[in-house]
Design a protein around this nucleic acid. Structure first.
Lengths: 143, 143
DNA sequence: CCATGCTCGTTCGTACACAAACGACATGGC
DNA sequence: GCCATGTCGTTTGTGTACGAACGAGCATGG
């Protein structure tokens, strides 16, 4: 008797997690190249979401951008240090820290939008429009 | 004249980078849950690749696992500190640092393989087999 | 046999990412 | 009015991730 005809071998390069990591790496590299290297994808997520929804609490912004409380804090600290965002206490709730885009922040957003679109475009460049839709709908199911 | 009928709005949640980040987050969470929390996806990549190819140089291992030289160094340092890998100078090339799986490392790999398969399985659970193949082939083009 | 240029590994600095533990505050139910 | 519960933000610790600068070793051309 053969000792269990076997498990198929584990091939790292076929695993979805490993593939995803590489796709993200490529995307981040493209993104950084288009942003004069002064806005990371994470920082851009926070800024653009803030432009989209207006002032909101720090934790709320974290939820909207899929960031941990500790992560969003660091991101907002860095953006505020650069004068792109500003925080203030919520008069209605002593726990909340309200985050707002400064005028400089709004300007940076306006100026960065086209690069952000381009980053999506360049990342998806190897795919046809139909493939892009397919990919997005499949990834949505895995969120 | 209308001031340029407009840019479509930038909606963060539709951008491939933002979606990818969330998919990776979910995958990593699944992976960590299946590994007794003591092997990260990155550490597993290094270990399993080492099991696959046998001893190799540190930078080479980094290339095989899509890690920066600085990143692979940190990963190997931590794995070696835990006794799962071992490094030694290459007698044939004074620059190279050879990395090897220790017996304990090999044992940990054997014991972790099923969890690694399961992580892939659970991550892809929302998709049909056909969709999984489609997704993988699309992602491959974006690597 | 030596200069040039490449690769190897290290170090430093910055930026996510998350768990866990903590104190402050808000709110609903009693 | 008060307590239980839950939310908000902070801090600490660990682990990726990458650019940039560095020194050392190797290999090739001249």
């Amino acid at each position: 008797m053969a000792p269990r005809p076997s498990h198929r071998p584990y091939v790292l390069d076929e695993q979805i997690g490993f593939i995803l990591r590489q796709v993200v790496q490529r995307h981040v590299a493209i993104f950084d190249g288009l942003m004069d290297g002064d806005l990371t994808p994470t920082q851009w997520a926070a800024l653009s979401k803030l432009a989209e929804v207006g002032t909101c609490s720090q934790n709320q912004l974290g939820r909207l951008t899929a960031m941990d409380v500790a992560t969003i804090k660091g991101v907002i600290d860095r953006l505020s240090a650069r004068g792109l965002t500003k925080t203030s206490a919520d008069p209605d709730d002593g726990r909340r820290l309200l985050v707002t885009l400064t005028p400089a922040g709004r300007e940076r957003v306006d100026q960065a939008v086209s690069g952000a679109f381009q980053a999506t475009e360049d990342t998806l460049a190897p795919l046809t429009p139909a493939e892009r839709e397919t990919l997005k709908s499949l990834l949505f199911k895995l969120k």
